[in-house]
Amino acid sequence: MSTWVVVDSMTLTRRALAHWRANPGPLVFGMLFNAMLVLVFAYLFGGAITVPGGQDYGSYLMPGMLGMTMLFGTGGTTEAIATDLRRGVVDRFRSMPMAPSAVLVGRAVADLLLAVLTLAVMVGVGLLIGWRPEVGPGFALALVLLLWFRFALTWVGVYLALRLREGVVTVVQTVEFPVGFLSGAFIPTSTMPGWLGAIADWNPLSSTVAATRELTGSPAVAGSWPAEHPLLLAVVWPAVLLAVFFPLAARAFARLGD
């Protein structure tokens, strides 16, 4: 059983990749949407936003956008799981002599691979608009922390899809924008009303984004405790999300039969 988890997960990861090859439309559209958001914020809104340290807004924005794309990826996770549940594909897998957990592990690995591609494209877009991150171990660590955040969100998505089924896509689409905007991704939280800024500071997205800024050479921002400890929180927050949602997802999956 244990070794089959790896083999079966690889088979199902390949299935997800084959889907994207056969039907790249939504993927390409998603990438274009992300690029468009960069342009809208960098050139339309950016002129009206001043950021600490006198940095240009485009460079402030890019780590935020990288974090946002990790958040957006959750929608894809939930949709894929909900579709397989609806079509009876999950039941078929569960009735086969394969490792049942491969259904979820295969999904998580595929989503991580897609996140790597998404980050590569977004870094390219950033370079085009003049973002010049310090390239080095810090940059690599920033990418790892972004993927760590994405990995944790995958299991939030899996749990929500298993519990909410069909309704999940609407819920995630409705929630991801407020969650994304109520953070330090687009604007410094210090410009928000005090209580709102505090909530935004404690948003896990803010921590991952702030850590990415620090690791790619943006000037550090003083202020609240979470704003001053972004690296620690960018490691801890996803770990907390995983500690809560991985067991919940595993239990919801095991209980599909009841």
Binding site: R86, R87, V89, D91
Partner: peptide, 18 residues
């Protein structure tokens, strides 16, 4: 049991894209 059965449920539970 799973190693010895085939199950065809109410939906045609195959992958639509492949």
């Amino acid at each position: 049991v799973r190693a010895r059965i085939g199950v065809v449920g109410q939906h045609a539970a195959v992958d639509e894209v492949l």
